[in-house]
Nucleic acid binder design. Structure first.
Lengths: 142, 142
DNA sequence: ATCGACTATGTTATGTTATTACATTCGTCA
DNA sequence: TGACGAATGTAATAACATAACATAGTCGAT
């Protein structure tokens, strides 16, 4: 990944300003953030309306750089290089601390593909999420 | 509550009235319904507020009778008997017609369990959804 | 340089989904 | 009957997402 430490990095490459801001905000945390949480964090940097965030997210998701985690309506950076092409991320989302861990598994991808083929369903996107308690949280007050 | 001449009884067993109404509404369709769509369909039957629907859904989901389909924020009857105990339903959701087909697969369940164990994640619920085009819709205007 | 096309943005308003908080009613059983 | 817990009613609001329309930057071809 490139550095981009400039606070605001104006329209760099093919990436818009808001897109870069949202990306930077997501880089600064290890938890998925909701669109309005992103909005709060970017106030004062020229981002004032939900649409600015949603548009940026749409593009980042289309690029495969960001995933939406449906079960919590939040957005996380993709921690896997070629996700755009391969898809099939699995998220383990902790209900206590909010951490979402992304993993990938080729046999899962095959299995889902087989299930879809069996019913002649043309898959465009897959959502696989596990909700539960992560190892760290299981230790505390378990 | 005056009449309720509806086919199904008032507060039957341990099931509340609203719960039964929501269940009946879901039975009358093959597509997942949003909470507010359910609300619209139940107006005039004594259901006027979102909370009435959400509470009913919460309980039905807890019973394993209804699933929430996260990727479309809608609710569908479980078409699989012992879902409450086994979990691991897979939904194929058609983006054209809205139909959601539920399937189950033991090896998928094992695979997800293995993935979770690998990172010592205690799974409470799983969400597996395929978004795409169903066989019927692929035929039309394909 | 400037025109045009395209992409990104800004702004306002609104639609959709879900929850909080608190009061009331119902069912059961000692 | 009265107490208790479960279910319900009601109002308000929070959280998530998009529609519609106007404006401004980017870039290539003339």
């Amino acid at each position: 990944m490139s550095d981009c430490e400039a606070p605001v990095a104006v329209t760099r490459g093919r990436r818009g300003r808001n897109q870069q801001l949202v990306l930077d905000a997501l880089r600064q945390t290890d938890k998925p953030l909701g669109a309005y949480e992103l909005l709060r964090r970017l106030r004062g940097l020229g981002v004032y309306a939900p649409l600015q965030v949603y548009r940026a997210l749409d593009r980042l998701i289309a690029e495969g750089i960001v995933h939406k985690i449906e079960s919590v309506s939040a957005y996380a950076l993709c921690t896997h290089a070629g996700c755009a092409s391969e898809g099939h991320a699995v998220f383990a989302v902790c209900t206590r601390c909010g951490l979402a861990t992304e993993t990938h598994d080729a046999s899962l991808a095959r299995l889902l593909a087989r299930l879809a083929r069996r019913q002649r369903f043309q898959v465009q996107a897959t959502t696989v999420e596990l909700s539960g308690v992560c190892e760290a949280c299981a230790g505390t007050t378990a």
